[in-house]
Write a protein that binds this DNA or RNA. Structure first.
Lengths: 353, 353
DNA sequence: ATGAAAGCGCTAACAT
DNA sequence: ATGTTAGCGCTTTCAT
């Protein structure tokens, strides 16, 4: 018995050699069998799998990554995990990735300064992620730059970059937003306000832009002061609504850049004794689970979270696989689209008159 | 120029040899410098760090893990990421772990069947996690068993296991629950109901138990039908409240096993035209961010999330470090405690009559 | 204090 | 179709 196998025998941890000797084959055959490559004969394959099962063996991913250069880890960076939209998104992404044999490296902390970005990039680089989904919905170009520089495939939401390694997911906010505006107009609203998200987020800017074009298309006149800055948080929504309440010419409906903002609005309205939807209609965006349970349940523009996660994963996988192809320079799909659609609940009604 | 360095030169990726040759030292010295070990002379150390910076070098964690057997990855498994309590917990844990140079392997999917548990265990084992925080707040003994069998340090909430590799975090629900009950009694409530969590969760059982002993201590008579099963979800809370509403002798206050349940109760009360807090007082547990924005803002028993994350990390770190100590069998701290405290908002008031 | 050299467990040439 | 062997980038004896 060689020193190698005696070491294994003592620790109890089977390695590829343990399997090989039990199955009476070479380690190469074990490796091939596991990786399903280059037709190992049925007979040996069976012996190998039997040995694997018998030993309860599984490969050491670190050794594997080291030699193959492939970590099978995907990074995902989101902002503000206190917005339930993101956990739901991560859960979907995780499910899909794990089903395909990938592990996730999640960065969920708030990104505020350069040092934090540096940390994220470092974590991703050190663990050798094969691709990163940047679902902060905007900004943080610096994250991108660094990662792109290192040749790591990226997928971004709502932001196109002229780089073959960077894919984009376009979210069709226009459709959902148009439905929302038409819904309000159909109810008789003429004065519609908008609580915007941070200007640093591409998605927030797109959402605002869709609001403006939808209202314009409906022939609605939106006063400047009806478009108020908020920040996608509960408190921000509350504060934004309070500013709206101070206006002479008050809107009868408010569309919010996300559901968190809308929940803040509901709160502010309640404090101001303003009844929703009788005296004020409120529309959110995202359709997080909580919207069914707000008082009243929130009408909102639903974003297909699962589709978004799926698109992000697919984008990355296509990139990763293209990278290891022989014909590396064949054009690949780099643009994906996700839909939105209005979900009518009970926070919208005809204006009082 | 050797074939090695020419490869590096072409890919641009510096490795330990690149650093060594630039600093004119051996790779062993580079390794020692990076790991801060066995006093490398100031002079060489400086040269090495300079080279590292100049090359923007960082070590390959896979290679490192392979040889050292230490992955610097910690697993964390939570249930039901749609409950905002868990994302907040993960974010805290991540922040602490990353600050200490650990990476996180998160499993956030719902754990429902044996296959899913198998998957989680496999993921953890394959990536060679050094410890796992099981913050599902109960059950899933099977996860534990498998991980323990493989000698992986574990930390659990509310569940003690007689194994030197398993630590426990005890949450002092008694204090917060007593405060809540006393608060209600002080307001004049005599009929207090309880919406319980799943019986499979140790934490839910502890919470229920604390409710029972607190009310007993206050001399409250709790009718059997006032203790209703729920499941820690919004819908479950709503359904539970609806059952309470059908009772002849209705309670004037409800304490819920968690905030999600309480938000469901608020919803059910609203549907039944029951005003909170005038006609019904509601108390939650966890103090998730949303509770400030429910209508009305929710009185709840706050659980020190950050302390919990901290305790979980410390427990694991102590285990990991003890494992690599020479005196491996010295006793280590295996029990931790986290506090709870009532946060009074506006969902509680004196009963009507 | 520093360096040389032996692997960590695996994959991928290369041989047969 | 299967086996042999040379590393992947690093840590860690063992020399010096």
């Amino acid at each position: 018995m060689s020193p190698r196998s005696s070491r294994n025998a003592s620790t109890g941890k089977p390695d590829i050699r343990t399997v090989a000797s039990l199955a009476r084959v070479s380690i190469a055959t074990v490796s091939r069998t596991i990786n399903g490559s280059s037709a190992v004969s049925e007979k040996l394959s069976k012996r190998v799998w039997k040995a694997i099962e018998q030993l309860n063996y599984f490969p050491n991913t670190h050794a594997r990554s080291l030699v193959s250069g492939r970590s099978r880890i995907l990074g995902i960076v989101v902002e503000n995990i206190t917005n339930p939209f993101f956990p739901e998104l991560i859960a979907s992404f995780e499910e899909i990735a794990v089903a395909h044999g990938y592990e996730l490296l999640v960065s969920s902390g708030n990104i505020q300064n350069a040092a934090q970005i540096e940390t994220i990039v470092r974590r991703m680089l050190e663990r050798k992620v094969e691709g990163v989904a940047v679902l902060t919905f905007g900004s943080e170009e610096s994250v991108l730059d660094q990662l792109v520089t290192h040749g790591i495939p990226l997928v971004l939401a709502e932001f196109e970059v002229n780089n073959p390694r960077v894919s984009t997911i376009l979210i069709d906010y226009a459709t959902g937003m148009r439905e929302a505006v038409e819904h309000l107009v159909g109810l008789g609203h003429k004065k519609v306000a908008y609580l915007a998200g941070p200007h640093t987020l591409h998605s927030a800017e797109t959402r605002l832009h869709c609001f403006e074009s939808s209202t314009a298309a409906c022939g609605l006149k939106i006063r400047r002061e009806w478009i108020v800055d908020a920040d996608h948080t509960l408190k921000g929504g509350e504060a934004g609504m309070q500013r709206l309440l101070q206006l002479e010419d008050r809107p009868t409906a408010v569309i919010c850049s996300n559901d968190m903002t809308a929940i803040g609005v509901l709160h502010a309205a309640h404090l101001a004794q303003l009844r929703v939807p009788e005296e004020l209609s409120v529309v959110g965006l995202d359709d997080i689970a909580f919207t069914e349970f707000t008082l009243p349940p929130l009408t909102t523009i639903g974003l297909a979270r699962h589709d978004l996660a799926r698109a992000a994963f697919d984008a990355l996988r296509i990139q990763v696989e293209a990278g290891s192809q022989p014909g590396e320079f064949a054009p690949i799909q780099r643009s994906f689209e996700v839909s939105t659609a209005l979900v009518v609940r009970q926070s919208t009604a005809a204006p009082k008159s």
